[in-house]
Design a protein around this nucleic acid. Structure first.
Length: 759
DNA sequence: CCAGTACTTAGGTTG
DNA sequence: TAAGTACTGG
C-alpha cells in the first residue's frame, strides 16, 4: 500500500477512515484532492465495489482529473465503474433513466441559461409585463433560488412571505411567471440546470422504490467542495446516504464562493446535526505556498466572522513578499503585468505555464489579452464563451436537439427560420401563442393545424410543414446512423453548411465559424469511435451531456506552455507558481454589489483568500487609478483588501514611467509587433485590430503625426483615400475621407488606424 | 420579410 | 464600449 506513504499523518487518517459519516475540513493547499482520490483508491483496495461508490465534484474538470488519478492507482478499468461527475451530470443520467416516472421523455432537453432567458422573455411578453420591472436575469434568479430551495410553483404562490417580498419589490406576478415557466419547460420536454437537482429531489421523494434502489447502489458517497452545495444538493445527498451513512464530505468554509447560486454554508453545520457521531478531520498543513503567502492569507480571512476555526500553516520557505503595483490606467495595468511576466520568464528561464492572471470579472481579460498578443506570448483564456456556446455551434446543436426531442421549443424558435426559410417573426408569434393557449408545444401545433388552428397564410404553413418533414426525416435515422454520419447529413440538409460557406465577406471570423462546425462534427466522430461495444453510437446519445459541457476541448491545439487567464471563481482548486491578481479596486473587487451586507462582503473576502492561495511562489496584486467602463473613464481607488493584508507581507512598487512620450512610443512599437497568432480559443472580439487606445495622445497632448486635410491616407478596409474634412477633438476626432472605391466615409481617427501615404 | 441603422442600457461569479 | 433591441425603408 505504497500510496499511504505519500500522505502526512492527518491525511492518512482521513484516507483510512472509509466507513461512517466523515467530514474533512481542508485548508487551502492542504492536499484535499489527494485525500479524496486516495480515499477512493483505498476503499477499492479494501474490496469495496466501485459500482457502489458515488463521487460528486463541482466541475467537470475536477471529475476528469480525479478519475484519471484513481485510474493510475487502481487501473482504468475499475476506475470507470465509479459514478463520478458533477451533481448535474450524475443526476441528469439518473433522471433520464427514470424520466417516465416524472412524465418527462428520457431524452429530455437540458435548457442552458440562454434557453431559459429566451423562454422567460417570451413569457413576460405574453403577460405584457414591463420588462424594466421584470428583468429577465432577476426573474430567472428568483426562480432558480426557489428551485434550489425546493419551492414548487404552488408553494411559491401559497407562501405569504414570498408573496409579500415580491409585492415589495414590485414584482407581484412572479408566481404566475414561475408557474408558466415550469409548465412550458415541461411541455417542451426540457429541464433547466436547476431542474436537474429539483426533479431529482422530486423523484427521490415521490418514488420510494427508486430511492431505495439508489440507496443500495450508492453505499459510499463522497462530496467534494461541500461548502458550495445548495439545499437541493444537500437533500439529495442526505436521502441517498440515509441507509448506510457512508458519507464523506470535503470542503473548506473559507473557500465558499458560490452563495450567489444558492450555496449554503449552513450545510456544513447541518452535517453535525444530521450525523451526530460523525468524524471530523482537519487538514491544516499547506504544501503549496510560501510562508509569506500563507500568513498573509490567514490574516485576511481572519477578518471574517462566519467561519470554522482552523490554523493553516506551512513548512515551506519564507518566500518573496507580495508585490503591490499601482498603475494610472487599465491599459497600463495590462502592459505592466505582462511585462513583468515577460521579464520574469526571460530572467529566470521559466515557461509561461508558470504564470496565471486572475481577475474578478471576465471582461477584465481584454487589456491583458491585447498586450499578450502584441508580444506574441502564448496564452489561454479559460471561461468566457465556450465552444458549445458559439452561435454557429448552438444553431447546429438546435437541429440535433430537435431531432432527439421535437418538442424543444427553444430549439425550434432558434432554427425554424435559420437558414432563412421565409418564416417570419409574426407567424412564429402566432404559432407560439396558439401553442401556449392549448398547452402544447410548437411542434404539436405545426403538425396538426386542424386541431390547433392558427391564422397564418398557406404559404407560410407549407414552409413550416416542410421544416417539420425535414426534422422527421432526421429523426427517422436517429437509431440507424452513427452520430457523426447523421450530424453531417443534418449540417448539409438543414442548409447550415451552405449558409456558412457562402458567407459573403470571408473574413477570418466566417472561416472560423465554418471550421467550428467541422470541428463539432469531428468531435462527434471521436465520440462514436470512443463508444465501446454495446454502447449507443447515436446522435441522441451524444446530445445527452452536451448542455453540461463547459470546456472548449481544444487544449491539444494550444501551445501547452501558455499564460493562464481566468476568473478567480474558476481558479478554485488550481495552483500556479506565479499569480498576478489584477483589478484590486473598490467597486470592482470587492464588487460594488457586495457592499451592502456583511455576508456578501465576507464572500468577496473569501474570494480574495482563494485568489491569494492559488500562488505557490509569488503573488502580485495590481490596481489602476482609472478604468474604462461603458466607454467612460472612471477613477478608481485601491481595494480595501490590499489594506487588509498586513504591511509586513507587502512590497509596494510603482512601475517606471518615463513620461508620456515614451509611453506613446512604447504603444506604437507594440502595434507594429502585432502578429496576431490567432487561435480559436480566443474570443472573437479579440480578433479586431488593436488601435491606439493605449496611446495617451488624447489626454496628454498629441505626439503622433498630425493628420491634416488634403493628406492621402490608406484605410484597412476602404483602401486609399483623401482627407476632406476634420472635426471634433481628442478622442472624438473624426475625419471625412473620400475613397475612390467606396465613396466618402466619416471615421473616428481613434479607430481608423490610418496610414499616412503623403502630404 | 429583411437588412441596415438608431437607440438603449448594461451590475457578476457557474453547471 | 458593446451587445441587444426597436425602428425604418426597401
Amino acid at each position: 500500500m505504497s500510496y499511504l506513504d505519500e500522505l502526512n499523518e492527518s491525511q492518512r487518517v482521513a484516507v483510512e477512515n472509509i466507513h461512517g459519516p466523515t467530514m474533512v475540513i481542508a485548508g487551502a493547499g492542504s492536499g484535499k484532492t489527494r485525500v479524496l482520490t486516495y480515499r477512493i483508491a483505498h476503499m477499492m483496495e479494501n474490496k469495496i465495489d466501485p459500482f457502489n461508490i458515488m463521487a460528486l465534484t463541482f466541475t467537470n474538470k475536477a471529475a476528469k482529473e480525479m478519475t484519471q488519478r484513481i485510474g493510475e492507482i487502481v487501473g482504468d478499468g475499475e476506475a470507470r465503474n465509479i459514478t463520478m461527475g458533477t451533481f448535474h451530470s450524475v443526476f441528469s443520467r439518473i433522471l433520464r433513466y427514470n424520466a417516465d416516472r416524472l412524465g418527462y421523455p428520457s431524452n429530455f432537453t437540458i435548457y442552458d441559461t440562454q434557453d431559459s432567458k429566451s423562454l422567460l422573455k417570451e413569457i413576460l411578453k405574453g403577460f405584457s409585463l414591463d420588462d424594466k420591472a421584470y428583468k429577465v436575469s432577476n426573474v430567472l434568479g428568483r426562480i432558480s433560488s426557489a428551485k434550489n430551495n425546493l419551492i414548487s410553483p404552488d408553494d411559491y404562490s401559497n407562501n405569504a412571505n414570498i408573496q409579500s417580498e415580491d409585492k415589495m419589490s414590485k414584482r407581484p406576478e412572479m408566481a404566475k411567471i414561475y408557474r408558466a415557466y415550469a409548465k412550458r419547460c415541461f411541455n417542451a420536454g426540457a429541464m433547466d440546470f436547476d431542474d436537474l437537482l429539483y426533479q431529482t429531489n422530486v423523484l427521490l421523494r415521490d418514488f420510494p422504490d427508486v430511492l431505495a434502489h439508489y440507496q443500495q447502489k450508492f453505499q459510499y458517497i463522497l462530496v467534494d467542495e461541500y461548502q458550495d452545495t445548495n439545499y437541493s444538493q444537500y437533500l439529495i445527498v442526505k436521502k441517498l446516504a440515509a441507509v448506510y451513512e457512508n458519507i464523506c464530505v470535503v470542503g473548506d468554509d473559507a473557500q465558499s464562493i458560490y452563495s450567489f447560486r444558492g450555496a449554503n454554508i449552513q450545510n456544513i453545520l447541518n452535517f453535525k446535526k444530521d450525523y451526530p457521531d460523525f468524524k471530523l478531520f482537519k487538514l491544516e498543513q499547506n504544501y503549496r505556498s510560501t510562508k509569506n503567502i500563507v500568513q498573509a492569507a490567514n490574516g485576511v480571512i481572519a477578518r471574517n466572522k462566519d467561519q470554522i476555526k482552523k490554523t493553516v500553516w506551512t513548512d515551506n520557505v519564507e518566500g518573496d513578499k507580495i508585490t503591490v503595483v499601482r498603475t494610472l490606467t487599465d491599459n497600463e495595468e495590462g502592459r505592466v503585468v505582462i511585462n513583468k511576466i515577460f521579464d520574469k520568464s526571460k530572467n529566470e528561464g521559466l515557461g509561461y505555464k508558470n504564470f496565471a492572471i486572475l481577475y474578478r470579472t471576465n471582461r477584465q481579460s481584454r487589456t491583458f489579452e491585447e498586450t499578450l498578443r502584441k508580444l506574441s506570448i502564448p496564452y489561454r483564456i479559460y471561461g468566457g464563451l465556450s465552444f458549445y456556446q458559439r452561435k454557429e455551434i448552438k444553431d447546429l446543436l438546435a437541429y440535433f436537439r430537435l431531432t432527439a426531442n421535437p418538442h424543444d421549443n427553444e430549439a425550434i424558435k432558434r432554427v425554424i427560420n435559420y437558414p432563412k426559410r421565409g418564416i417570419g417573426a409574426t407567424s412564429m408569434q402566432k404559432v407560439l401563442i396558439a401553442a401556449n393557449e392549448y398547452g402544447v408545444s410548437f411542434w404539436d401545433v405545426i403538425n396538426d393545424f386542424q386541431t390547433y388552428p392558427v391564422d397564418i397564410n398557406n404559404g407560410t404553413i407549407n414552409k413550416m410543414l416542410d421544416f417539420a418533414t425535414m426534422i422527421k426525416s432526421f429523426a427517422a435515422q436517429l437509431d440507424r446512423l452513427d452520430a457523426n454520419i447523421l450530424a453531417e447529413e443534418i449540417a448539409k440538409t438543414s442548409g447550415i453548411l451552405k449558409e456558412l460557406r457562402t458567407d459573403k465577406d470571408k473574413g477570418p471570423e466566417e472561416v472560423e465559424r465554418y471550421q467550428n462546425i467541422e470541428e463539432l462534427i469531428s468531435a462527434i466522430q471521436t465520440f462514436v469511435e470512443g463508444q465501446i461495444e454495446g454502447e449507443s453510437k447515436s446522435l441522441s446519445e451524444f446530445m445527452l451531456d452536451v448542455a453540461l459541457l463547459t470546456d472548449a476541448e481544444e487544449d491539444n491545439k494550444i501551445d501547452p506552455d501558455h499564460v493562464t487567464l481566468m476568473t478567480i471563481h474558476s481558479s478554485k482548486g488550481l495552483e500556479f507558481p506565479h499569480v498576478y491578481l489584477v483589478g484590486l479596486e473598490e467597486n470592482l473587487f470587492p464588487s460594488q454589489l457586495a457592499l451592502n451586507s456583511r455576508t456578501e462582503l465576507e464572500e468577496e473576502r473569501r474570494l480574495f483568500y482563494v485568489a491569494i492561495t492559488r500562488a505557490k511562489d509569488t503573488c502580485t496584486l495590481s490596481y489602476s487609478n482609472s478604468r474604462f467602463q461603458w466607454g467612460k473613464l472612471i477613477t478608481c481607488e485601491a481595494s480595501r483588501f490590499i489594506d487588509e493584508v498586513d504591511d509586513k507581507f507587502l512590497s509596494f512598487e510603482t512601475p517606471e514611467r518615463m513620461g508620456g512620450r515614451s509611453l506613446n512610443n512604447r504603444g506604437s512599437s507594440f502595434d507594429r509587433s502585432f502578429t496576431g497568432g490567432l487561435n480559436k480559443s480566443f474570443t472573437s472580439k479579440s480578433l479586431k485590430p488593436i488601435n491606439s487606445i493605449n496611446s495617451k495622445s488624447s489626454i496628454k497632448g498629441s505626439s503622433e503625426l498630425e493628420i491634416k486635410v488634403g493628406y492621402n491616407v490608406e484605410h484597412d478596409r476602404f483602401g486609399k483615400g483623401k482627407i476632406i474634412k476634420l472635426e471634433g477633438a481628442d478622442a472624438d476626432k473624426k475625419a471625412t475621407i473620400f475613397f475612390p472605391n467606396h465613396g466618402s466615409k466619416t471615421v473616428l481617427l481613434r479607430f481608423a488606424n490610418l496610414k499616412i501615404l503623403d502630404f
